[in-house]
């Protein structure tokens, strides 16, 4: 049942997101309200399809299926869509969040050719701590991706003063909120990961490259949560930090997961 439904749901979600992005791009050029409304409806539809697929896979597996590269890409993509919807519904950022949707398409698109089969769960991962650790981790990453998007747009808007983009105050506000929420989720991810490490390995901090860089991500964004109170770091400085921070996130997730030997292998 799940195998039969999985592929159609995945492709339908991808197609819906793709169409939504195209409509948002049209909205950037034509500025017609019906365009962004249609695009938003499509994102919501795509998110519902993806959520249904995720739910079916979860029920079928009996655990959150994020134990291989396909699973993590799929879940990260879902978290990005959820983050986009949160900010769109809250602030009506429209095409300003397109980068996050591009990331979403890229992740989902590159996951589609991979084998979606759910591997059997190894006992080491058979704990609710694993589910919570991974869910909070990708939730945090998704918010950091949104902060990156807002940072890039802030710098562009400052230079271009374009009517196509939200004003600087809104971009700054969304950026700060994304960093704060990402930091909160990532903190919970680190706490739960540490407890899990203690019961699985007998110590709560590992000097493995993944553990170190995850601590760096936490420290960096913790610093950013403070930097917003310093005048010099507000605005452009904060935007640059958001961009740099996402570089660290990408390296921690993909660079280490795929290119290096770590205790968090992706494939």
């Amino acid at each position: 049942m799940v195998n039969m439904l999985q592929a159609p749901l995945l492709y339908a979600a991808f197609g819906t997101y793709l169409l939504a992005v195209l409509l948002y791009l049209c909205h950037l050029l034509l500025r017609k309200p019906w365009l962004w409304r249609s695009a938003l409806t499509l994102v919501i539809s795509g998110f519902c399809l993806q959520s249904l697929c995720l739910g079916l896979r979860w029920v079928d597996a009996g655990y959150l299926p994020v134990t291989n590269l396909f699973g993590t890409q799929f879940f990260f993509s879902w978290a990005l869509a959820a983050t986009y919807l949160y900010f769109e519904l809250r602030y009506r950022i429209h095409a300003a969040g397109l980068f996050v949707m591009f990331c979403n398409l890229l992740l989902l698109g590159s996951a589609l050719p991979r084998d979606p089969a759910i591997p059997p769960l190894i006992p080491a991962l058979d704990t609710p701590l694993f589910t919570l650790h991974v869910a909070f981790s990708f939730g945090g990453y998704a918010f950091f991706a949104m902060a990156f998007s807002m940072g890039v747009l802030y710098l562009l808007q400052r230079r271009m003063q374009s009517g196509l983009l939200p004003d600087l105050a809104l971009l700054r506000k969304v950026n700060e909120e994304a960093v704060f929420l990402g930091f909160c989720l990532f903190t919970l991810c680190m706490i739960l990961g540490s407890i899990w490490a203690y019961v699985a390995w007998g110590y709560y901090f590992s000097w493995n490259i993944k553990g170190i860089w995850s601590a760096l991500v936490w420290l960096f964004y913790g610093g950013m949560c403070h930097a917003k109170f310093v005048r010099r770091w507000q605005g452009s400085g904060y935007a640059l930090l958001s961009i740099a921070g996402f570089g660290i996130v990408l390296f921690t997730y993909l660079g280490i997961g795929l290119l290096m030997s770590s205790n968090h292998p992706l494939d």
């Binding site: 170190i212 913790g222 770091w233």
Partner: peptide
């Protein structure tokens, strides 16, 4: 706080690159 967190981040970033190239030194840390 920001200066110290930034400095610690940069030091660990640079140092961690040695972890994979010198396993004889760092593999035993855990």
């Amino acid at each position: 706080a920001i200066v110290l967190a930034s400095a610690a981040t940069l030091v660990v970033m640079a140092g961690s690159l040695l972890i994979l190239s010198k396993p004889e030194l760092f593999a035993m840390m855990d």
